[in-house]
Structure formats: C-alpha cells, structure tokens
Write a protein that binds this DNA or RNA. Structure first.
Lengths: 164, 164
DNA sequence: GCCAAGTTGTTGACGTGTCACCAACGTTAG
DNA sequence: CTAACGTTGGTGACACGTCAACAACTTGGC
C-alpha cells in the first residue's frame, strides 16, 4: 500500500522515506488483518442481531453508564466521533427503538442519550458473542510473553500518535 | 468496546466468553491506535494532495502494474473491494482525470482500469510523504526484536482469520 | 442587566460504501 | 447450434460520515 515499484531498491537508505522489505510485509499484514478482523466482527454482529459495530459501541457505552444515560457531548468525546455524526446515528437508533433522547435540566443546551429497555436487552444478548469472537480471533492462543509484547507495541503506537 | 459492567468479575473463567483485564486493555488500545493511525494517514494524504486512502490504494496498485493497467476484477480481488464499490470509485476518479477505462479485447465482458499521466504524476508525488508518515508513526523506533514480535502476531492473526 | 463569545446539539448538502438487480458476454453440455 | 449457467461490470436506492451553518443556550466582562 505504500511502496512504488521501481523505487524500492534505488532509494532505500536511512534518510529515505521508504520502508524496507520487512517493514513492508509487516505493514501490509497490519492493514490486512485490520480490515479482515473488522469485517469479521461486523459480520458476526450483523448476523446475530442486525446491529453494526457503531451501534454496538454506542450501546456498550450507554449500558456501562449509570441509568444507561450519558450526556451527548461526553458520548461523542468518548467515542471520538463528531457531534453531527453521533446526532445522525442517535436519530437512526431512536427510530429503531434502541435509544431515546432526554432534555437536560442542568444545562438548557444539553441532552442525554438514554438506553431503552429494548436496547438493554439487545446489548446483553449480543455482547457475549462479540467478546467470544474477539477472544478467538484476536487473542487466539497467545502466550503471556506475546501478549505483553503486543501490549507494549500498541501502547507505544498510541503514545506516538498522541505526540502530534 | 466489548465488556458490560457488572459481568466483569462474576463471569470470568476459562470457558466464559469475556476478556480479562489485560486483554481488555490491549483490545481497546488496538482499536484506538487503529482508528487514530488511519485518521492521521488520511489527514496527511488529504492535506498533501486532496486524495483519500481509497484513492491512494487504487493508484498504488495501478502504478505497480505493467503499463499502469489492471483488469477491474483483478483489482477488486486484490483490494478485497466489492466490484460495485470499485466501479463507483473508478467513476469518481475518472471524473478527476486520475484513471481511465479501456475495453478488453481478450474478454468482451472485461475492462481495464488505466492510470493516466496525471494519475502517475500524483502518485509519485504523494507516495514518499505517505511512506514517511507510516515509518514515523507506525514503526517509530522499534527494535529488531519488537518488529519480529509484531510480525509474528500479525501473521498469526491473519492465519486465524484465514481459517474461517 | 446586557452584550459578546463560546458551547451544545441539530440539520441539510454532499461524497462515499453497500446491496440488489440488471445487461452483456463467455462457457459448456446436449 | 443453442439453452443454461456463471462471470463481468454498471446502476439506482439507500445507509452512513463529514462539513458548514444554525438556533438555543450559557458564561464572563462591563
């Protein structure tokens, strides 16, 4: 995804922008595994319950909050979504009866997203299958050392991304 | 993204579907780093050249093929895209002058996607910046051992995904 | 109290991805 | 040959994400 034929050999050096062969392979594996893992999880959710990964994230965050209620700003912050995206998404989920909106008495501008009973039933039905899929596909039979190494890598990657 | 409050302690066991605390942390880190890495790469491409990650993938695959020409089916297979998605995307890129379509003499049904001169200029301008961003953000200052560990993990993950 | 500036949430327009369907063509069995 | 079937690529409808703009509200300085 990142290397043009012909430049490979000629331009490789410490100061060139290119990736070496091993980096190349790892990078493409990362892209591939990501795409396919996401697709597998989405398929599993969709088949089991007709929900998308986005729906699932919203439902989980609501269900983890007291009374299944979260201020919409805070939800957008946590999910790292744009407000308008969340607003559109809540509208769609509201139509399906999974969430509701409530006005906010403390701040006249604000609003809460609230999990409905139907939404809570759904998330409790769906979560175990999702967790199992993640465990089987993502973690597999990793050893403790391998898990620790992965932990260090993702933590380091996040730190690098934070620096920007 | 995968654990409902309240179930955490009670249901953890070898046969339960849930993730333990460390798996939980690593999984959320993986999701986070993915989302943010993708966003960073997209931002870089968009600012530098007005292209999306999807545009970039198409351009790279075309530029890596002889005469910048690939059968559309094959391109869809390589990218793991739906044909209709690729068809729509090629239409949009065609309007911007980055690619063209050519009929196929060997197979009357078939068609080629062809890189235009303009498209080739663009990809050659954009690729170095992209590669540099990947190297800086994704690989950072990884040691050889860390890189090898990452290689093993992504390879294993892909193998697990293939088994399905 | 009052005005300027910032915050919260929503909306509409637009670009893009997915799905179902279709036309055109190739391939193969009879 | 031809009828049946699979393949290739395209189209329209719809779902979704982003952006710009907006109304309603709060906050802080005066």
């Amino acid at each position: 995804m990142c290397q043009l034929t012909g430049y490979t050999g000629a331009m490789r050096s410490d100061t060139s922008p290119w990736l070496d062969d091993r980096q190349q392979r790892v990078w493409r594996q990362w892209l591939q595994s990501n795409a396919r893992l996401t697709a597998a999880l989405a398929r599993q959710l969709s088949q089991d319950s007709g929900t998308s990964l986005a729906d699932f994230e919203v439902l989980v965050h609501l269900s983890e909050s007291p009374e299944g209620r979260v201020r919409i700003v805070q939800l957008a912050d946590t999910l790292q979504w744009e407000r308008s995206r969340l607003s559109h998404h809540l509208t769609r989920m509201e139509k399906r009866g999974l969430v509701e909106r409530q006005g906010c008495t403390e701040d006249g501008r604000g609003a809460y997203a609230v999990l409905t009973d139907e939404g809570r039933v759904l998330i409790e039905q769906v979560a175990p299958g999702h967790a199992r899929t993640v465990r089987d596909l993502f973690f597999g039979e990793l050893t403790d050392d391998e898990l620790a190494a992965l932990d260090r890598f993702t933590a380091g990657l996040l730190a690098r991304l934070d620096q920007r």
